[in-house]
Design a protein around this nucleic acid. Structure first.
Lengths: 101, 101
DNA sequence: CGTGTAAGGAATTCTGACACG
DNA sequence: CGTGTAAGGAATTCTGACACG
């Protein structure tokens, strides 16, 4: 049921204040697939606190001279690894407790 | 350092969606001192998730036929009691562990 | 590549008031 | 008392583009 941290309720102006990034930068990072806010009926972007945290991370990496495509690649790898871990864990559980479910 | 739950970052339109209340109602409850959002430089209201929860509570009480001034009174009493509890606890601690600090 | 900016328009919010009850 | 609504204006956000580098 999605905690508050993941609820997309913050408008770009507030996100800009919270992160210190310009709205231009925030929209650009979205275009580069680094974040994906939701949209209101009218089309205004809505972010979560998790998105805000992600943007701060992104900002730090950009400062370190990393490019957007590298940041995106890194994020994907991280997700892939987590996915593998979950699957391995599931496999081990199935081996230890077969016939479950 | 204020958790996300207490950060005032949500605009009234989103609060309206989250609570099911009309913007009119939300502004009215503010006028009656039941909630106190912050304001952006431009003057737009900003609410926290805690405010949203409070509004849901208020909505329930209104449904039960309670009036705004009663809800406000009730809220004040609750705060006063909590304050007393804290002070009593502090007093007991000071008695048990004098000369501390 | 990443970001600033001016441009025009659309969505969002604000206040004070009238209405009903 | 609590809430809906139309009114006019201001703040906020959106997109596509030009600029620089």
């Amino acid at each position: 049921m999605k905690s508050y941290k993941e609820k997309k309720v913050i408008s770009i102006g507030v996100v800009s204040e919270l992160t210190g990034l310009s709205e231009r930068q925030i929209r650009y990072y979205e275009q580069r697939k680094l974040i994906q806010p939701e949209r209101s009926k009218g089309g205004t972007r809505k972010y979560s606190f998790l998105d805000v945290e992600g943007l701060v991370d992104i900002a730090n990496k950009m400062e370190d001279g990393m490019q957007t495509f590298e940041i995106r690649k890194q994020a994907k790898q991280r997700l892939a690894k987590e996915d593998i871990k979950k699957k391995m864990l599931r496999g081990q559980l199935n081996t230890a407790f077969p016939n479950q479910r």
